[in-house]
């Protein structure tokens, strides 16, 4: 498959007054293929969110380049939709209006009927028909995040960037949302980058797991290929040798090679 999203020698420094710059991430080289699902995992402070923000264009790298389809990323754009950790729905709009606002802006050429159809399609994709006229304040955390996912997918992005999308949810809700995401991915086949600190989530969802070393000067430590057939079944996988191998590889990376002792 051709080169789709590529990061070359990416480094991010934050200036600290009176001291040397803080180097959050350095020397990151990564090629991501189309329709690939990638997890980036690491301890807190490893710069994984910084990395995602640079791909999103919300933050600029200090060195190196990030290219999507051979074009340098110079700022945020709807072809790289972001699902934020805290859902970031606008609280004065209903679920429907939150999605509608995004679609309207990115696809101004749609007629009102097409617009309506598109918004409805993505609401039903996350099974939220019953909550479409509710404000985010009336929804549970998991439902809010599902609206967030629907909003991100509704604008037909080339890459879906998810910044610890399920991190703020309880583990049962999180499992539920992972199922939603896998089911949607079966039909949509997006390129997805997920930032996570959950080992099971990383193995369950991804084709490759990028493991980050600890910051400062964090970089890619190891890349793990997850050779599991899709659709994947959470319960069956628990005894699958490949699943166990992947899990142990990440465990060993995070808790032996790059254990964080000050936490």
């Amino acid at each position: 498959m051709s080169e789709f999203l590529s990061l070359k020698n990416v480094e991010k420094r934050f200036p600290i007054s009176g001291k040397d710059d803080y180097v959050a991430v350095t020397d990151v080289n990564l090629e991501i293929k189309k329709n690939e699902i990638i997890s980036i995992i690491g301890h807190s402070g490893c710069g994984k969110s910084t990395l995602l923000n640079m791909i999103a264009g919300l933050d600029m790298q200090s060195e190196g380049s990030i290219e999507l389809n051979g074009k340098k990323i110079r700022g945020p754009g709807p072809e790289r939709a972001v699902v934020f950790q805290n859902h970031s729905l606008l609280p004065w709009l209903t679920s429907y209006q939150n999605i509608e606002m995004a679609v309207k802006k990115v696809m101004p050429e749609l007629s009102s009927i097409e617009l309506r159809a598109r918004v409805e399609k993505y609401i039903s994709m996350v099974n939220l028909e019953h909550a479409k006229d509710k404000a985010p304040g009336e929804l549970s955390g998991g439902m809010k995040q599902r609206v967030g996912i629907a909003r991100a997918l509704s604008i037909n992005p080339e890459v879906l960037l998810m910044d610890e999308p399920f991190g703020a949810l309880d583990s049962l809700t999180r499992a539920n949302l992972q199922e939603h995401l896998m089911r949607i991915q079966e039909s949509v086949k997006n390129t997805v980058i997920i930032i996570t600190h959950d080992i099971d989530e990383a193995v369950l969802l991804s084709d490759r797991v990028i493991m980050m070393t600890n910051g400062p000067d964090a970089t890619i430590g190891e890349i793990l290929e997850v050779n599991l057939e899709r659709p994947r079944k959470r319960v069956e996988l628990q005894h699958d040798p490949e699943y166990i191998r992947c899990r142990e590889a990440i465990l060993s990376f995070l808790y032996e090679k790059f254990a964080k002792e000050d936490e």
């Binding site: 264009g57 945020p76 939709a81 934020f84 970031s88 606008l90 802006k105």
Partner: peptide
């Protein structure tokens, strides 16, 4: 900041930011 990030990803113009995010 999160709302502004949403506006950035959707590439809102300054006027759209004011009307759709800041004023509400």
């Amino acid at each position: 900041e999160d709302y502004m990030n949403v506006a950035k990803v959707l590439q809102f113009t300054p006027m759209e930011k004011v009307v759709q995010i800041i004023l509400p």
